[in-house]
């Protein structure tokens, strides 16, 4: 069936959890594009045939108008015209099916790209300018480029405003929070103090300092995670 592969692509996106990305399916994507090429190959000869049939019909009508013909010939040419017309209709029908399939394929591909781009844009707000490796390998090269540009735009906007917008997405109740360190980090210079973030240490930190460690919990290089037990 036409456009089956394209819908598989969309289904694959739909089955991944909202906000999560699955690996860009280069293989299936290319197959859909190939199918589009196939439709085009079918479409072109059909278009040519439709043109031919139309020309023939026009010629017939003109010749009928110009020359007087007998009753017998008239009937014959009527019959020919009917045959031509049905052939024309079949060709148009076929062309229409291919055209619709092309439009459908396009819609599926566009939706796939668009919805992924939406997720990638939201990534720019949630993680800092560098993507963790396990997410980055899921993106296609153009998507990586897109993410980089989007983050750059976001950064330049924030520096223009002189306001860090991605901090405190949830408004804080208190500037300090109590955290427990899950992994060894060592000495870190925080905005108001130099703290030794040893494993299992429980301490009071400024929210803004702690936030980056909590939200980037999964990031590999940093192997450090906070868990805070109380949010006073």
């Amino acid at each position: 069936m036409y456009a089956r592969k394209a819908s598989e692509l969309v289904k694959e996106f739909a089955s991944s959890e909202p906000g999560q990305l699955s690996t860009f399916n280069n293989d299936l994507f290319a197959q859909v594009l190939e199918e589009c090429e196939g439709h085009l190959l079918h479409l072109q000869p059909l278009m040519r045939k439709i043109q031919e049939h139309e020309n023939k019909l026009k010629d017939k009508r003109r010749s009928e108008d110009e020359v007087e013909i007998s009753e017998d010939e008239r009937r014959k040419s009527e019959a020919e015209k009917v045959i031509l017309q049905t052939a024309l209709k079949s060709d148009q029908f076929g062309a229409l099916v291919h055209h619709l399939s092309l439009v459908r394929n396009k819609r599926c591909l566009m939706a796939y790209i668009y919805n992924r781009a939406e997720v990638i844009r939201s990534l720019g707000w949630m993680v800092d300018s560098v993507l963790p490796a396990e997410i980055e390998e899921k993106l296609s090269s153009t998507e990586k480029e897109y993410f980089k540009n989007h983050v750059a735009t976001l950064q330049s906007y924030m520096s223009e405003l002189d306001l860090h917008l991605t901090v405190d997405m949830v408004p804080p109740k208190d500037p300090y929070i109590k955290v427990r360190v899950l992994d060894d980090i060592g000495e870190v210079a925080l905005s108001d103090q130099v703290a030794n973030l040893a494993r299992h240490a429980i301490m009071f930190l400024r929210r803004t300092d702690a936030e980056q460690y909590i939200t980037q919990g999964g990031q590999k290089q940093r192997m450090l995670r906070f868990q805070y037990s109380l949010d006073i």
Binding site: Q20, V127, I135, V170, D183, E211, T215, Q216, G218, D231
Partner: peptide
């Protein structure tokens, strides 16, 4: 109950690294 309000960014996955 008043639970924690900071959370790991959901995209970073739910699997926790062994501690």
């Amino acid at each position: 109950m008043g639970g924690p309000r900071f959370q790991m960014a959901p995209v970073l996955g739910r699997k926790r690294k062994p501690t």
